[in-house]
Nucleic acid binder design. Sequence first.
DNA 1: TGTACATCAGTGAACGCGCGTTCACTGATGTAC
DNA 2: TGTACATCAGTGAACGCGCGTTCACTGATGTAC
Lengths: 212, 212
Amino acid sequence: MPDETHAPAVTPKAAYHHGDLRAQLITAVRGLVEAHGPDGFSVAEAARRAGVSSAAPYKHFKDRHEILRGVVSEAMDRLHAAMEAAAAAQPAGSLDAVAAIGLAYVDFARAEPGVFRLVFGLTEGHENAPDLQQKGESCLGVVVKAVAARLDLHPNDPEVQRRAYILWSFVHGHSFLHIDMKTKVTTAEIDDWEYLMEISRAILAQAARSQS
Amino acid sequence: MPDETHAPAVTPKAAYHHGDLRAQLITAVRGLVEAHGPDGFSVAEAARRAGVSSAAPYKHFKDRHEILRGVVSEAMDRLHAAMEAAAAAQPAGSLDAVAAIGLAYVDFARAEPGVFRLVFGLTEGHENAPDLQQKGESCLGVVVKAVAARLDLHPNDPEVQRRAYILWSFVHGHSFLHIDMKTKVTTAEIDDWEYLMEISRAILAQAARSQS
DNA sequence: TGTACATCAGTGAACGCGCGTTCACTGATGTAC
DNA sequence: TGTACATCAGTGAACGCGCGTTCACTGATGTAC
């Protein structure tokens, strides 16, 4: 039971009838998405990577869309956890906490650009998935929480929501631009931490001013 | 000759041997990308939409990747033109000019989410296309120009480059978030113009301060 | 203006391929008594 | 502890499909004289 749950590597033969195929398939698809882009994935190839027949995945997923949704769901869990952890490592209510969440986000995008694109680019089958939508919102929730703590306001305060969304937009855009044109950005190289601190300061200072 | 160049609609029979198939194919692919997402496109279906045989496209494009690159190139031209036009419609050096460029960007994403995603998500075949990379940089160039005018600095000034990139990141992220979760964003609804003005002011004010 | 010819932009048939999915099956596992 | 049986998670063969691309072809267009 202990080694069945976290499925660390794709160990084909040991998996027979041991219940970790679902996790292994998701791992395999992750690899495919990184290697060949968000749509460069096939059920057949994923099964091959997991060392099972091409029919086996259908014992765990209804169809290919459900597999993709599984990958996205798992990725969002990891992203959420990374953001929470980053915030927790900084003093509560600090600007550093806000910047750290942003850095965790950018780091995720940089580490798994394919999956990152998949998470935010899933067009078909995404609509009927309220659980994914909710996970997305709970990621935003981490930012909201940190901003509220920083501004000493209630998370439901519209000003907090607004600032959190602005910060998220920026970090999101920076992440995408970074992975899209990884080569050069024309501009001088950027130190993410300084960068995020500066932005957070600018956005939250503006908030403090308009609130006084 | 007049109606051959701009190829307004897909008029199948009239196209024989009149030289506008290339443009018609790009139009068809645009439609497909909007309808079925960036990867929901096939040469065969595009040819069908343009009213020609499935072999005809190969008289104008080397392979499917080249068609996609053609679509992206055309889209970037339009995006660039829209940004320029938006800036030109505002007083030179004004904050409004900066915000207007951002609004043009967001509007483009909203009008053609599929193509927008394609432009920034093209992973394979994108590397060997310096012309596309250059077009991307010239889009950033529009922002840089407006920011330089606003701050009364030279476009090559690192501070200008930096602020322009920050603004671009924000607008880019806002665009993506907007088309991804078009339904609701948890936060209250946003008026783009006010929003962009506010952000531009915050970012450029911060620049002015750190420069003094 | 007329004719001969090269070129150009299409056709349509054909190919091999990999995919998604189904199906009847089989052997391992878990459970009731 | 042993046996009978239901269930579970795989197999592997097969299917139909649409795709990307090639090929020999054909009829329209442009051009030289």
